[in-house]
C-alpha cells in the first residue's frame, strides 16, 4: 500500500474494517471484522447513520443486525476520528435484499460523515474493464449501460434495456458479444435466446458463450498482446502495453472491419430529422 506524506508508514497508518456475512479471506487482512446477519445491511447502515448524529437506537434493533451496540459505537468513533475515510461496497450490498436501496443508504452515510470528517464511498467493480465500458458509454451516450439506440439516439432504462432483459424478452434478433461471458452467468431464458439467434463472440478464449455462438472470432488479449486503455475502479485510466505479439487480431481491428463492411450496406434508418429538440 502506498506511503504518503500524511501516512508515512503506508498500511500501518491505515485502519481497515470489513463488514460481511461470513469471515472471508479478506477478514484476515483487515484490522476489524464485523459479521452482519444476511439481509441486514440496510438496518446496520441506518443505525450507523443515527449513531453518528448521536441519536438513540433501540437495543433490539441493533441486536438484529448481528453486530453489537458496542461494536457500532466503536466503529462510529473510529470513523469520526479518521482523517480520510473510504467505504468500498460490492455486490453483497447491491444484489441482495434491498438492492439499490442499500447502496443509496451507504452513499448517504458517506455524505453525512462529511459533517465530521472527510469521507467518500466507492463501488468495487467486477473483473476486467467494466469501469472502462461504463466511462466510454457515458461520454458517448450520457448513460453507463442499459442503453437502446433503436430510435437512432441513446435512451436508458435499466430493467428494460439491460442486456439480460432484452434477451429474456426475446427482443433482439442478433447478438454481438465482446470480452464477456453471459452464457456463464445469465438466467437460462437469456442463454436460450442467445443460442436461438445469430450470436457473434469476440474472445481470446473458448467460453460458455462462444460455445453456443454461431461465430467465434479469436482475438488477442488486451494488455498482453493488444494495446489499449483500462479504467481502474476509481476511473483512473491505465495504458495497456502489449508484451507479446499475437497471431490474432485485436478486438478493435475486428470491430472496425465489421463496421466498415456494414457501412457499405444500405443504411437501416430512414432519412429524417437531424435532431429532436425535446424527447417528451
Amino acid at each position: 500500500m502506498p506511503k504518503s506524506k500524511f501516512l508515512p508508514r503506508g498500511r500501518k497508518d491505515r485502519t481497515a474494517v470489513l463488514v460481511d456475512i461470513r469471515p472471508t479471506k479478506s477478514a484476515k487482512a483487515c484490522d476489524i471484522f464485523l459479521q452482519v446477519r444476511p439481509g441486514k445491511d440496510f438496518e446496520l447502515i441506518t443505525i450507523l447513520r443515527a449513531l453518528i448524529k448521536d441519536q438513540k437506537v433501540s437495543e433490539e434493533a441493533v441486536a438484529e443486525t448481528g453486530v453489537s451496540l458496542e461494536q457500532c459505537n466503536d466503529l462510529v468513533d473510529r470513523m469520526k476520528k479518521a482523517k480520510f475515510g473510504c467505504m468500498f461496497f460490492g455486490m453483497g450490498l447491491s444484489m441482495t435484499r434491498g438492492k439499490h436501496m442499500n447502496s443509496a443508504a451507504l452513499l448517504t452515510l458517506a455524505t453525512e460523515m462529511n459533517a465530521f470528517t472527510k469521507f467518500v464511498a466507492m463501488p468495487m467493480r467486477g473483473h476486467g474493464n467494466v469501469t472502462g465500458a461504463d466511462v466510454v458509454m457515458r461520454w458517448q451516450t450520457g448513460y453507463p449501460f442499459g442503453i437502446t439506440f433503436n430510435r437512432g439516439y441513446p435512451r436508458y432504462n435499466p430493467g428494460e434495456f439491460s442486456t439480460v432483459d432484452v434477451l429474456v424478452r426475446g427482443d433482439t434478433d442478433a447478438a454481438f458479444i465482446i470480452g464477456a461471458d453471459p452464457g456463464a452467468t445469465m438466467p437460462q431464458p437469456a442463454i436460450d435466446h442467445l443460442a436461438r439467434i445469430p450470436t457473434i463472440v469476440l474472445d481470446p478464449h473458448i467460453t460458455h458463450t462462444s460455445k453456443l455462438s454461431r461465430v467465434h472470432i479469436t482475438t488477442s488479449v488486451a494488455g498482453i498482446s493488444a494495446p489499449g486503455t483500462a479504467y481502474r475502479m476509481d476511473e483512473i485510466p491505465l495504458p495497456l502495453k502489449p508484451a507479446l505479439k499475437s497471431p490474432y487480431p485485436t478486438d478493435e481491428e475486428v470491430v472496425r472491419r465489421i463496421k466498415d463492411a456494414i457501412a457499405k450496406k444500405r443504411f437501416w434508418m430512414p432519412e429524417g430529422e437531424q435532431m429532436i429538440t425535446a424527447q417528451i
Binding site: Y153, A278, I280
Partner: peptide, 8 residues
C-alpha cells in the same frame, strides 16, 4: 438526458 434534445 431523458428530457433534453437528442441528435439522431
Amino acid at each position: 438526458h431523458r428530457r433534453t434534445q437528442a441528435f439522431i
